[in-house]
């Protein structure tokens, strides 16, 4: 006789909440226990009746007010939301980064709101594209690092992205509600800009790199220690993926020479 599952396990089985091994254990038990099987069948049937009662075919049209609010809400939420790049890309990213946590891609297949710090990074990148101004040029690299570290209160390093085709242009400090943010700017041979954005906030799930498309840009973001990192550019997601890997790996290994 198989082990008797708990009452909770029976409901989890009914609702598809058990993994394959536990589900098989419950099924083996049910095969040998007619009364429990019949009881679960009643639960399932009642659930089904309940669903039928709420079937939506004849649901009255929502009021004008509800329609209008729904439209405004979707417009409002849409503004700050990113669209995930192919989940395979993300899968290879998380596989690459040590300690990658499970991430929301599979669950949220449509889109989700990017963290406010990433929105700020995108805005900063837009402004940079419009003004092309950095405060501290690449020639003063040591000064740039010292300045960013002093304002962010954390170790900051400026990674060398030559391996992915980008050279350092410079950096600047930005003021946000919760303190200073830093934007480090790179450029490739075609003059295409890339921002590495650092903020001393912990609003992104630890250990996870997420790739999204925000408006016309591609962004990658993750939390590394006390800093939230965003990498933003108008480039192919595959290249941005390589940049994100480069930056996060450099951050984990500490400042290079």
């Amino acid at each position: 006789m198989p082990d008797e599952p708990t009452e909770t396990d029976l409901h989890r089985w009914l609702d598809g909440e058990l993994g394959p091994a536990d589900a098989a254990r419950v099924e083996a038990f049910l095969a040998a226990d007619e009364p429990t099987r019949a009881r679960l069948a009643e639960y399932a049937r009642n659930d089904q009746l309940l669903r039928s009662a709420f079937a939506t075919e004849d649901e009255p049209e929502p009021s004008h007010a509800i329609d209008d609010l729904g439209r405004r809400l979707s417009a409002r939420l849409g503004r700050g939301r990113g669209r995930p790049v192919a989940s395979l890309l993300a899968a290879s990213l998380t596989a690459f980064v040590a300690g990658a946590a499970s991430y929301p891609f599979l669950e949220a297949q449509l889109s989700w709101r990017v963290p406010p710090v990433v929105e700020a990074a995108v805005r900063a990148h837009d402004v940079l594209e419009a003004t092309s101004r950095v405060e501290v040029p690449a020639s003063a690299r040591a000064e740039l690092i010292e300045r960013l570290e002093r304002h962010l209160g954390a170790d900051v390093f400026v990674p060398d992205l030559a391996v992915v085709g980008f050279r350092l242009v410079g950096g600047r400090l930005l003021v946000a509600d919760e303190g200073a943010h830093a934007q480090i700017v790179y450029e490739d041979d075609q003059g295409s800009r890339l921002s590495v954005y650092l903020a001393g906030v912990s609003t992104i799930e630890e250990g996870e790199i997420t790739l999204v498309e925000v408006e016309d840009l591609t962004a990658g973001y993750w939390q590394g220690g006390t800093l939230a990192y965003s990498v933003i550019a108008d480039i192919d997601p595959e290249i941005l993926r390589q940049v994100a890997i480069e930056v996060s790996a450099a951050a984990e290994n500490g400042p290079e020479g």
Binding site: S63, A65, I66, L69, G70, R72, L73, R76, L77, P104, E107, A108, W112, R113, V114, P115, P116, V118, T203, I204, E205, T210
Partner: peptide, 20 residues
């Protein structure tokens, strides 16, 4: 209706990464 109005007013508080 009240729920949607609240959601609209508080749209910026939707936590990052969480589904709607």
């Amino acid at each position: 209706q009240e729920c949607l109005a609240r959601a609209l007013a508080n749209a910026s508080t939707l936590k990052p990464g969480l589904p709607v």
